[in-house]
Structures are given as structure tokens and as C-alpha cells.
């Protein structure tokens, strides 16, 4: 269960961003829509434990995210939250398999066969030893999704996952995320300004530049 309660944030003297109270259960989906500068990414960063809000609380399975200190928060983020960035942002010096396994290592979990499982699940099996530079944009995006899923998180956050994709691929990626979230019984939150995927997700909220 994910609970977002009374969150407020502002950058310096800029207007306050008020985040609506949200409750999500495992397997729930939420689309966060809004134009650039509306605070969507800020919301995602706060939810992902990357940016502490000025006010309010986020509870994930009963754990208040920002009451965790330093290393505890890092560890919690690594093991409970899977983040998919707008661009894949894979680490160049590492292979595909090493990129996917990285959250394992940071969470100090023993390595198992999940890397190969997700390579297969996302249709990129056989690429585990490939260098990042040799991947197509679509393959790289799938690797970044596998990296977000490998620790079997409770919440999957995707920031503009379809912005650089055509209609067909955008639909494929959203369905992929939905399927995996369902399998993991994780809450899926997609932050986007891409109206194309509105029909794929039942529940949505829209952010406006002046706050919600």
C-alpha cells in the first residue's frame, strides 16, 4: 500500500507545488499527466525518495519514506522502488547484464537468475554480454525497464517512458510496464505529457503549472 499525504514542495521563491493525496495498492496503475513545468517530475522525485518534500508524508508498506535516514533511505529505494527514466541512462562501461544487476549489488542482495529472466521477459535475451553502445534505442529502453524491475519493487515509477517512441512502440512499452507491474503486484505510476497513453491507464490525474 502506497499513501501520499499532504505533500508540498517549492523551489526557492517559486510557487508551491501541492501534490494531491493518493492511495495505491499493489497492482494499481496511475497516470500523472501535465505540461512541462507543472511539477510532474518533482512529484516523481519525491515519490521515488530522491527529493525530500517540505511538508507531508509518503508511506510505502507502512514505512514513512522521509523518516528513513541516509543509507536506510538508499537501501529502501533500491529494494522497494523501481525508477524508469525518460532516457534509458544505462552505464556505458558495463554490459547489459551488469547494468540490470546493479540494483542487486547496491541493495546487497545475492545475485540470482532474475537478470536472465527479465532479459527473456522483455525480449532481449541473448544480449546479456552486449555493450550498451551496441543497443538500439528500443533495446536500451527495455534494459532500463529490466533494471527497474530486477529487485521486484513495490512501486514502479516511469518518467516519460514513451516520449521518444512512435505510437506502436509507445503502446508496447506501456503494456509491458502494465504486465510486469501486474506480475509483481507493484503499483505503477507513469508521469508523462504524452496524451497517447491516456487510454492505456484507467486512473489519471493532471498537474497544472500553478499547482494541482
Amino acid at each position: 500500500m502506497i499513501t501520499v499525504k499532504g505533500i508540498q514542495f517549492s523551489y526557492g521563491n517559486q510557487p508551491k507545488i501541492n501534490i494531491p493525496d493518493i492511495e495505491l495498492n499493489g497492482g494499481d496503475e496511475l497516470l500523472v499527466l501535465g505540461k512541462s513545468g507543472s511539477g510532474k517530475t518533482t512529484f516523481l522525485n519525491i515519490l521515488g525518495g530522491l527529493l525530500a518534500p517540505h511538508q507531508g508524508e509518503i508511506l510505502i508498506d507502512g514505512v514513512s519514506l522521509y523518516k528513513l535516514k541516509g543509507h536506510e533511505l538508499d537501501k529502501f529505494r533500491g529494494s522497494h522502488i523501481g525508477i524508469i527514466f525518460q532516457k534509458p541512462h544505462l552505464l556505458g562501461p558495463l554490459t547489459v547484464a551488469e547494468n540490470i544487476a546493479l540494483p542487486y549489488f547496491f541493495a546487497k542482495k545475492p545475485s540470482d537468475n532474475k537478470v536472465l529472466y527479465y532479459l527473456k521477459e522483455l525480449g532481449i535475451h541473448g544480449k546479456q554480454h552486449a555493450r550498451i553502445q551496441t543497443l538500439s534505442e528500443g533495446e536500451a529502453q527495455r534494459v532500463s525497464i529490466a533494471r527497474a524491475l530486477v529487485n521486484e519493487p513495490k512501486i514502479i515509477l516511469a518518467d516519460e517512458p514513451t516520449s521518444s517512441l512512435d505510437d506502436e512502440n509507445a503502446g508496447l512499452v506501456v503494456n509491458l510496464l502494465k504486465n510486469q507491474a501486474r506480475k509483481l503486484q507493484a503499483a505503477l505510476i507513469i508521469v508523462t505529457h504524452d496524451q497517447r497513453i491516456k487510454n492505456h491507464i484507467d486512473r489519471s490525474i493532471t498537474f497544472n503549472p500553478s499547482g494541482l
Partner: peptide
């Protein structure tokens, strides 16, 4: 810097 930020986002501790 982006690599480091990504590492932090996927669970790396500052000390790591």
C-alpha cells in the same frame, strides 16, 4: 554526474 545520479536512484549509498 548523470551516471552517479542514476546509481543513487537505483539504490547506491553515498558512501558506495
Amino acid at each position: 554526474k548523470y551516471d552517479l545520479a542514476v546509481m543513487r536512484a537505483i539504490g547506491a549509498a553515498k558512501s558506495q
